[in-house]
Simulated assay, not measured.
Amino acid sequence: MMPFRWLGRAAMLLVLLLAGYAAAGLVGGAIPANAGWRPPAEGVRIYVESNGVHVGLVVPKVAAGVDWRGVAPGADLADPRYAGYDHLAIGWGERAFYLETATWADVKLRTILAAARGSDATLMHVEHVPAPTPSRDVRSVLLRPEEYRRLAAVIRASFAVRRETFRGYDRNDVFYAARGRYSAGRTCNAWAGDALRQAGVRVGRWTPFPVTVLGWF
Rank of each mutant, 00 (worst) to 15 (best):
A78G: 06
A89N: 15
R171A: 09
A160W: 13
R136T: 14
F159C: 08
F159D: 04
V141E: 00
R81S: 07
A96M: 07
D79G: 00
V138F: 00
A152M: 01
D86W: 06
T103H: 10
G70N: 09
G74T: 11
L57H: 06
G56V: 09
A116V: 15
A131C: 02
A102V: 13
S119R: 00
A96R: 11
R149Y: 07
V59R: 00
E164A: 15
A153S: 11
T103D: 14
Y169S: 00
F166L: 15
V55P: 03
W68H: 05
A72T: 13
V55H: 01
Y98D: 08
R81M: 09
R167M: 15
A63F: 09
A78L: 05
T133Y: 05
I46N: 02
L109A: 13
D86V: 06
A153K: 03
Y148D: 01
R171M: 04
A153V: 02
D76P: 10
T133C: 03
S119K: 00
F97R: 01
R110L: 04
V129T: 10
V55W: 02
A78M: 02
H128C: 06
V59N: 00
G65I: 10
W68E: 04
R45N: 10
V138Y: 00
P145I: 05
R81A: 08
R150S: 04
R171I: 01
G93N: 06
E164H: 14
V66A: 06
H128A: 07
A72G: 12
R139C: 14
D106A: 10
P130K: 07
D106H: 11
A157G: 03
I155H: 06
G70Y: 09
V141M: 02
A157T: 06
V141I: 14
R171P: 00
A78Y: 00
A153T: 11
A116N: 10
R139Q: 12
A157M: 06
R162P: 09
V107F: 07
D137Q: 11
V59M: 00
R95F: 09
A131M: 06
A105E: 15
A64F: 01
H125R: 09
D76A: 08
I46S: 03
